[in-house]
Simulated assay, not measured.
Amino acid sequence: MPETMDLAIPPLMWAEAAPDDAFDHAVRRAQAGCDAGLVAHNLTAAQMQAALVLAPDVPLSKAVAMLPLCGVGLQSALGALAPPEVAVELDWNGGIRVNGGLCGGFRIRASTPEPDAVPDWLVVGFTLTLLPETDSPGDTPERTALYAEGCGDVAAPMLLEAWSRHTLNWIARWEDDGPAPLHAEWSGLAHGIGETVDVGAVRGTFLGIDEDFGMLLRDADTTHLIPLTRLLEPTS
């Protein structure tokens, strides 16, 4: 995307084209001390990448709620732009599903791995596949692309703008009302609740999430709580 493209990003945010991976670019900018609100993006014909720099004022164990929050923001944006029959679901680990097929995913990184510390910065980003990665989609039936699911009219810049708006609205709601509304919204979009899943060495039934979006996983003996901080990528 050209640097000069105008994007209707809401107040408190600004867009910046990334020369490479949008998530890595946002992390570098955050490490260099940029203000919160940066929306880094790299939009191509086949793929959409975006990442948001945040400056939490709560401990990391609470701030990681920005991962599911940004997912809900994307679902809300697609809900407004895509045909009504298109179903968007979210995996606990950040996966984005469109009509059941995996279509991309979210990532998260912070300035500190310590759950009780307030991070200087936190970055949440996603990659969304727009066009099929192969001419033979039957070879990868578990994966899909947005434009293969009836969303050919959803232009990436328009989706980026809508994601920014909906995400900002959800951040304001999370700050004003606490995690309960986000918890309820995400739970209604969650993929795999009630199913058997594997998380690391633990295999069990995905029962749902706790207040901080940790996964409740029941095996034959006990219920495990897997904190959302498990998904944080290491920061060099």
Results as ranks from 00 to 15, higher is better:
residue 108 I to H: 10
residue 115 P to R: 11
residue 104 G to D: 11
residue 128 L to K: 00
residue 133 E to Q: 15
residue 88 V to E: 10
residue 162 A to K: 13
residue 166 H to W: 13
residue 146 L to S: 09
residue 161 E to N: 05
residue 73 G to M: 11
residue 77 A to D: 01
residue 119 P to I: 05
residue 114 E to W: 06
residue 137 P to Q: 03
residue 119 P to T: 00
residue 158 M to C: 01
residue 118 V to N: 06
residue 144 T to P: 03
residue 75 Q to K: 14
residue 157 P to M: 12
residue 105 G to F: 07
residue 80 A to M: 07
residue 128 L to S: 04
residue 79 G to S: 09
residue 88 V to W: 10
residue 127 T to P: 01
residue 130 L to M: 10
residue 135 D to W: 06
residue 113 P to A: 14
residue 145 A to E: 00
residue 139 D to P: 02
residue 169 N to L: 14
residue 110 A to E: 08
residue 156 A to P: 10
residue 135 D to V: 10
residue 169 N to S: 15
residue 121 W to S: 01
residue 83 P to D: 12
residue 133 E to G: 14
residue 168 L to T: 09
residue 103 C to N: 15
residue 133 E to P: 00
residue 122 L to N: 02
residue 164 S to D: 07
residue 89 E to C: 01
residue 118 V to A: 03
residue 122 L to M: 06
residue 149 E to N: 08
residue 146 L to H: 08
residue 159 L to Y: 11
residue 124 V to T: 13
residue 147 Y to R: 14
residue 133 E to L: 15
residue 77 A to P: 05
residue 109 R to G: 08
residue 78 L to W: 05
residue 164 S to L: 06
residue 100 G to N: 08
residue 79 G to M: 03
residue 141 P to T: 04
residue 89 E to K: 13
residue 106 F to Y: 14
residue 118 V to Y: 02
residue 151 C to I: 09
residue 155 A to S: 10
residue 140 T to L: 14
residue 124 V to R: 01
residue 77 A to G: 11
residue 110 A to K: 06
residue 135 D to E: 15
residue 74 L to F: 08
residue 161 E to I: 09
residue 129 T to Q: 12
residue 81 L to S: 08
residue 92 W to D: 11
residue 125 G to P: 08
residue 78 L to T: 03
residue 97 R to Q: 10
residue 117 A to L: 07
residue 159 L to S: 04
residue 77 A to H: 06
residue 95 G to E: 09
residue 84 P to M: 02
residue 76 S to D: 15
residue 151 C to A: 13
residue 96 I to N: 06
residue 74 L to R: 05
residue 87 A to Y: 02
residue 163 W to N: 01
residue 78 L to G: 07
residue 133 E to M: 14
residue 108 I to T: 12
residue 135 D to R: 15
residue 79 G to R: 05
residue 78 L to F: 06
residue 97 R to F: 14
residue 72 V to P: 04
residue 121 W to Q: 02
residue 93 N to G: 12
residue 98 V to G: 10
residue 116 D to C: 04
residue 118 V to R: 14
residue 115 P to N: 10
residue 123 V to K: 03
residue 78 L to D: 03
residue 153 D to Q: 14
residue 75 Q to C: 14
residue 122 L to A: 05
residue 152 G to M: 10
residue 120 D to Q: 14
residue 165 R to D: 07
residue 160 L to Q: 02
residue 122 L to P: 00
residue 166 H to K: 14
residue 120 D to W: 00
residue 125 G to N: 01
residue 157 P to S: 12
residue 102 L to I: 01
residue 85 E to A: 12
residue 166 H to E: 15
residue 129 T to W: 01
residue 101 G to Y: 00
residue 127 T to D: 15
residue 137 P to H: 02
residue 165 R to C: 05
residue 95 G to V: 00
residue 153 D to N: 12
residue 125 G to D: 04
residue 83 P to S: 10
residue 141 P to K: 03
residue 162 A to T: 08
residue 160 L to M: 02
residue 99 N to A: 10
residue 105 G to V: 09
residue 77 A to C: 06
residue 81 L to W: 07
residue 157 P to G: 12
residue 137 P to G: 01
residue 156 A to R: 12
residue 109 R to Y: 00
residue 134 T to R: 13
residue 108 I to V: 15
residue 89 E to F: 01
residue 82 A to T: 04
residue 143 R to K: 12
residue 135 D to M: 09
residue 104 G to F: 09
residue 99 N to M: 05
residue 79 G to E: 06
residue 142 E to G: 13
residue 148 A to F: 04
residue 161 E to V: 07
residue 103 C to Q: 05
residue 167 T to V: 12
residue 78 L to S: 03
residue 81 L to Q: 11
residue 102 L to C: 01
residue 74 L to Y: 05
